[in-house]
């Protein structure tokens, strides 16, 4: 078993912390894990990309080859579209629908969404609304993990445990809101 995830979004959307949640859950399940992320200049409002690979055998490359990702988990629809060349045939896309237009030449958001809908296995989720329902607007990234949970080769309880671990430092209220966001996400893409 191997499972490769491309996580993508825009700097500041919390993509890297989500990558950590899934990676921890995978390790708790005894899988080998490699995770690659970007730091530095590109983080300043630019594209943010993380690759997360898990396998019951040893993982070699920290980068996912093109056309082999099992899942694209996107925090922004244009970024989902950008990494479609990494998706394997039959792979899944779970993406937030809200465009982040911090660039002059952002295409028509409806056209972006329409392109994504053409891909079988794409789930478009209003992660911001789910996060607000859960009581913490900043939990949109975790709501997306919930929406992707059915695809992941991991138990929901393992993901919840990793969420608790990651947010423990920020207090019970934040942990609870993120767990609710995760649950709302699961229900949004059952």
């Amino acid at each position: 078993m191997k499972y490769d995830i491309v996580l993508c979004g825009v700097g500041g959307q919390g993509g890297i912390s989500v990558s950590v949640v899934i990676a921890r859950a995978a390790m708790a399940a005894g899988l080998d894990v490699k995770q690659s992320e970007v730091h530095g200049m590109s983080q300043r409002g630019g594209e943010v990309l993380a690759h997360l690979r898990m396998s019951d055998k040893e993982v070699a490359s920290p980068i996912i080859p093109r056309a082999s990702a099992d899942l694209i988990l996107a925090f922004e629809p244009l970024e989902a579209l950008r990494y479609v060349p990494w998706l394997r045939k039959g792979g899944a896309i779970v993406t937030a629908t809200a465009p982040l237009k911090n660039m002059a030449n952002y295409p028509d958001p409806d056209a972006v969404v329409a392109e994504l809908r053409k891909i079988p296995g794409a789930a478009l989720v209003d992660a911001d609304a789910l996060a607000k329902e859960a009581g913490n607007a900043r939990a949109a990234n975790v709501a997306l993990v919930g929406a992707a949970a059915k695809h992941l080769p991991l138990e929901a309880s393992a993901l919840e445990a990793a969420i608790k671990e990651l947010f423990a430092r920020k207090g019970d209220a934040v942990v609870e809101a993120n767990l609710r966001a995760f649950e709302h996400g699961r229900r949004a893409n059952p």
């Binding site: 825009v10 700097g11 200049m41 590109s42 983080q43 300043r44 409002g45 630019g46 594209e47 490359s61 980068i63 996912i64 080859p65 093109r66 056309a67 082999s68 244009l78 970024e79 579209l81 950008r82 479609v84 060349p85 990494w86 998706l87 394997r88 045939k89 792979g91 911090n102 660039m103 030449n105 952002y106 295409p107 056209a111 972006v112 392109e115 053409k118 891909i119």
Partner: peptide, 30 residues
């Protein structure tokens, strides 16, 4: 990256999903 090495080893490209007809413009840092 692994794709460049794949080509150098003479292996064919992996077949994925069809490329989107809308090429996403770059999002430079700011």
């Amino acid at each position: 990256n692994p794709d460049l090495v794949r080509a150098a080893l003479g292996l064919p490209e992996r077949e994925g999903v069809p490329a989107p007809s809308l090429p996403p413009p770059g999002r430079p840092p700011q």
